[in-house]
Structures are given as C-alpha cells and as structure tokens.
Amino acid sequence: MENKFRWLSGIVVLTIITGTSMTHAYEVGEVRDGGTISGQVTFLGSPPEAVHFNVDKNPEICGQERSLMKVDVRNGFLTGAVVVLEGVEKGKPFLPQAWTGTAPGEGDFQHRGGNSLGLRVNTKGCNFGPFTGVVAADQPIQFGNQDSIKHILHTFVAKGRRGSVLRTIHNRDIHPDHEMHLTVSSGKLQDSRMVRLACNRHDFMENWLYVVKHPYFAITDEEGQFVIDNIPQGHYTLRAWHPLLGLQEQEVQVAPGMAMGKNFGFSE
C-alpha cells in the first residue's frame, strides 16, 4: 500500500514538472498566413545626455574617452527599444541576426537562430555590444573576449520598473581570447525579464537584455521602427521596453494575413 502511494506521488510530481515545463516551452512550427505588426517608438522631450567617461584602465584598448548613450533618440524616434509580442507558444523559428554596438568598440550580439535564440556576445574594444538586446532563459550564452585584456563580466537580474534592484547572476573573469558559456536560469530570473551586463573593470561597459521566450521580438532601428512578422492568429500583448524608460503594453488581436500598425510613445 505504501509502495503504491509512493509510485502515485512520483507520477503526480513528474506530471506536474513535465506539465509545467511544457506550458512554458516555445514550439517551432509552421505558420500559415501569419500576421504582421509594425510601428514606431517615439520619445517626447529631451532625452538624458550621453554619459561621458575618462578611461583610466586600459585606455590603449578601450580608448581615452568613452561615452554611453543610454537613451538614443534621433528626431524624436527611440532607437534600441525592445518590442516583444507576449503569449505566442508556437510559431516561426528564431532568425539568425546580429547587432553591433556603437563605436568605439565593435562588440556585437549575434543570434544563431533555429530552434533557439543562440546568443553569442563578442566583446571587442571594451564593448559587449549594443546597449539593448535580448536573451533567452535557460539557454547557454556564449561570451567571447576578443580584447587583449581581462574583462570581469557581471550579470544581474533587474527588478523594479527601471531595474533599480539588481541581483547578481554571474560574476566571472573573461580572460583575453577566452570564451565561456553562461546561462541565465529561470530560477534566478523568477518573474523578472530584465538582465543587465556590466564589466567590473570598465564602468562604461553596460548593456541590458530583455528575456524572450520566442522569436516574436524586434529592436527599433534608428528611425524607431520595428516589424514583427509571421505571427500566428491570436490575442497577444505587445510590449515595448527600454531599460531606463520602462515598459509599455498594448493588447492586440492578430487575424490571418493581417498587417497592423502599432506605435509606442515614451517621454521624459
């Protein structure tokens, strides 16, 4: 009797675990007659000025002076806002993509694409990559250091509307020409979707990643534009996020073959 109870408990627990993981997993599949959402993200007011740094450590690699444009606004359009369609469980595969950081420094975020995001962070010229990007939970991120100096990679999960509470996820040395695989575990993230990258040695190296579960995301270009295509029909939440400006949401109903325009507006 006791053995039967144990077996039963085991099956129940296994079912719960399997069920839970299945609920959260994104499945790549065929999308017929998918919809498209496009739009622009604007910024009203005067954006904060770029932060300037006099480089004390490794200026020969990092440059004598650095600036960090945290809120990049051009002609009223916000660059680097992450737009994500929340709630898609099955759809198109991840796309191979790459985003390069602003000069000086040529660090970039590369996505291998396929069934997973496949993020690779190439650190070069004391630059991890663009100020904003995306990451997937529980998937290995490949960090590479192409500089001839050590960087100390410090990743945090951020909480609060503007990430005012940061909890360390990793704090690791990346030696010159070395690579390492790190994972942002969902256990560490809990309910947060914001991850901050920083280098303990160079305080101008700061980047923010939004946690995505599927490929239905976009990062706004220099004109604040975004396009998310091949969306299966359904009801979703469209989010626009910027680490310093916060999060905005809109409910959207996507019908087969439908092209929809949606804009977001942030302000000071």
Binding site: H154, F156, K159, G160, R162, G163, S164, V165, L166, R167, T168, N171
Partner: peptide, 16 residues
C-alpha cells in the same frame, strides 16, 4: 529597493 528608487540609485544584491 524603494529607498534606492527614491534616491535615483540602484540596489545591487550579491555584488561579490
């Protein structure tokens, strides 16, 4: 965290 937000600062937990 609330105190940090009010001061325009960030609270870092586990900064080793």
């Amino acid at each position: 965290g609330e105190s940090a937000e009010a001061k325009g600062e960030r609270l870092i937990i586990g900064n080793f």
